[in-house]
């Protein structure tokens, strides 16, 4: 009997494990190895160069631009998305249930579109001469605010960040709504009886009780902020411009590998990004655990 059970377990696990090793672990391991070589991507061989690629990273101004931009995105994009998501979700709780359900579906729409489609649509919106944004500003007499959104260094990255927020906020509205619905109604009633206003209710009741969802959202959005490749590649001048203003690590990596034929160096960028993402996830998860214990 016991023997048969093991056989069953192995039969169920091994195929999945093999797939995981071949298609997930092995590529990671190969990237680690390649980051220590000068592989060109087309040669059958690569020679070992030690940590040279990592030393180069420190002096690569375009890569440092990319790191800076990803950090800006990391500081702005998750916070804004979560703030808007929480705001809309707590508003939905207070609206009538049918209207709320309708809104929730509408908010979710951008999530149904591929990010590529979103980026293409928004590059039309940002068109300086015929785009929706500038035309709208001119129509209401604010033509002075019209800009070449994607071609001015001070606005390009923020314009990209706005698209990222727009495309992801709906998902978090739904996530936070579900979390808020999980809060027992007595708590809100009790708070109301104690004379709590809307702000107090939000900061003292809602927010502490959905904290765990917020932590998870931080991890997901943080990872997305460290990526942002697709939107930048499709929308921006250059891409990555003007003059590096919207360069992100993923784009540097892609260009280094596929346009410059330096897969070894590109792998080093990938490994650096891997550790950045891992650190972020570990930090967010650790603080997340502590919060839950405090509440319990």
């Amino acid at each position: 009997m016991r023997h048969g059970r093991w056989r069953f377990l192995l039969g169920a696990l091994v195929p999945a494990l093999v797939l995981h090793v071949v298609f997930v672990l092995s590529p990671y391991a190969q990237a680690f190895y390649l980051s220590l070589t000068d592989w060109t991507g087309v040669a059958g061989q690569a020679s070992f160069v030690g940590a040279d690629n990592y030393v180069r990273l420190g002096g690569d101004t375009l890569f440092l631009d990319a790191v800076r931009n990803n950090l800006v995105l990391l500081a702005v994009f998750p916070l804004v998305t979560i703030a808007i998501g929480l705001f809309l979700a707590s508003m939905l709780r207070q609206s009538s249930s049918r209207l709320g359900a309708g809104y929730r579906i509408v908010y979710f729409f951008p999530q149904l579109l591929s990010l590529v489609v979103v980026a293409v649509l928004w590059s039309f919106v940002y068109n300086p001469n015929t785009g929706l944004l500038n035309s709208g500003l001119r129509a209401v007499g604010l033509g002075g605010l019209a800009r070449s959104w994607l071609a001015e260094p001070s606005f390009a990255l923020l314009s990209v960040a706005a698209v990222l927020v727009w495309s992801s906020v709906g998902f978090y509205v739904v996530l936070f709504s579900a979390a808020i619905e999980g809060i027992p109604a007595e708590l809100f009633e009790a708070a109301k009886l104690d004379g709590a206003g809307r702000w107090a209710m939000f900061f003292r009741v809602t927010l502490p009780l959905v904290r765990e969802s917020v932590q998870v959202a931080f991890v997901y959005l943080g990872i997305a902020a460290l990526d942002a490749f697709a939107v930048v590649q499709i929308m921006t001048v250059g891409p990555g411009g003007p003059d590096g203003a919207t360069e992100v690590i993923g784009l540097s990596l892609y260009r280094t590998a596929f346009s410059y034929g330096k897969f070894g160096y590109a792998s080093a960028m990938g490994v650096a990004l891997f550790f950045a993402t891992l650190t972020l996830a570990v930090l967010a998860l650790r603080s997340g655990r502590r919060e839950r214990l405090e509440l319990a």
């Binding site: 672990l25 391991a29 190895y33 061989q45 570990v282």
Partner: peptide
């Protein structure tokens, strides 16, 4: 757990890594 994962990874990397560039010239 982090250290353990790191050690496992360090052991596994050489075993898994030799694929891409193995063709001879």
């Amino acid at each position: 757990t982090l250290l353990r994962t790191a050690v496992t990874a360090a052991v596994a990397v050489p075993a898994l890594a030799g694929c891409v560039t193995s063709s001879s010239d």
